[in-house]
Simulated scan of single mutants.
Amino acid sequence: MEPPDGGSTELGELIGRLAGDDLDRETRGRLLRRLARLLGQSARRVGAAGVGRGRWLGELMIEAAPHIPIRDLETLHAHHRGLMGEELADRLVKVAGNATTAVGAAGGALAAVEFAAPPLLLTAPAQLAAETLVVAAIEVKLIAELHEVYGVRVQGTGTARGAAFLTSWARQRGINPLEAGSLTSALGTAAKSALRKRMLRVFGRSLTTMGPFLTGAAAGAALNRAATKALAAKVRNDLRGSAGGPPPLPADHGRRGRRHLRSAD
């Protein structure tokens, strides 16, 4: 299948931006609505059945993967005020959980507005797709940064790393760089199939946001947080095994850590 038409690069960049953890509620809601509008054009061409098969969502996610911002260990250490090791991993999971919670709440609020106007019910697949893609992007970002924390470095171009982390997310497993075929520049047939199935599961979770009024927002938020935490627990267990020990510390961590901790006082 060819990459989705209608500004796929713009879609990828927008999804990548929404994966960031520095967005306020207003900005996230505005960007999510914009993404839903862009996806609506493509969703109408694909049709509800096409969206439901997962292939469309999978291809959109592949397009977005290279645009997801991934910070290295030094940057993560500095950004989170000197946290290291398991404490840093815990913090990343908490931040990602907060972000997917916020997306679920924003998606539910948007659905409540759309349900108030029956002619706009046709936009529901686009709104659900937007929420699904952003939640997936946030979780892919989390997985990638957990690999950094545990010292399991994934080298290569943005496309190759994106493919590796997408596969890791789809299979809910950490990457083992020594495993044959774990790092490739493109997803193979099996990996794409796993990605489609995983996207459909998240899409199904997003359906909870379509509940009446704002009950969907509460349900979507709670489900997203729980799912993100469960995913992180599985991947962290794998990464602990791959690393063969505790997470490594950033270079010159002692001096830099003290500096950041003093600045937080």
Rank of each mutant, 00 (worst) to 15 (best):
A78C: 02
M84I: 13
G7C: 03
L18M: 14
A222Q: 09
E63K: 07
A180S: 13
L223D: 10
A227Q: 06
A106F: 00
L110G: 01
G156M: 09
I62G: 07
S168N: 05
G254C: 02
L38E: 12
G244P: 13
K234M: 06
I62P: 02
A96L: 03
G158A: 04
S185M: 09
L223E: 07
V113L: 06
G85T: 14
L178I: 00
G58P: 03
R256Y: 03
S185R: 08
L39Y: 11
A106R: 02
M61A: 15
G188K: 05
G151M: 06
N176K: 06
Q172K: 00
G20M: 10
R44L: 14
T184P: 03
V202A: 05
L223F: 02
A264L: 14
S182D: 06
L261K: 13
P246Y: 05
L23M: 05
G6C: 05
L195M: 03
V202C: 05
A243E: 00
K94L: 11
R37V: 12
A226H: 06
K197W: 00
S206Y: 00
A137T: 06
L39A: 10
L261C: 00
V95G: 04
S263W: 00
R262W: 11
G82S: 10
R28D: 01
I138K: 12
F213A: 15
V46M: 03
G82D: 07
A180L: 04
A186G: 04
D72I: 04
P118T: 12
G151L: 03
F203I: 02
A164D: 03
N224G: 15
R55P: 00
G245H: 11
M61F: 13
T189K: 15
R258L: 14
G162A: 04
L187Q: 04
A230E: 13
A36M: 03
L32D: 04
V134E: 09
A164L: 00
L128T: 04
I70W: 02
A144E: 08
G50F: 08
A226F: 06
W169E: 10
R91K: 13
A112P: 06
R196M: 08
G47N: 11
V135H: 12
A49S: 10
T101K: 04
G54D: 08
A129W: 01
V46K: 03
L18N: 09
A116M: 13
I15H: 14
F203K: 09
P3D: 12
G108C: 07
A163Y: 06
T215D: 04
P247A: 12
A105G: 11
L39I: 05
E59K: 11
G174W: 01
L57G: 12
R173W: 01
P66A: 07
K141D: 12
A49G: 08
S8R: 15
R258E: 11
R28I: 07
T209F: 00
A48Y: 01
L60V: 11
L83V: 01
A78G: 07
L88Q: 12
E13V: 14
G257N: 12
A194W: 12
R34V: 04
A130L: 01
A233F: 01
G108K: 09
G245M: 01
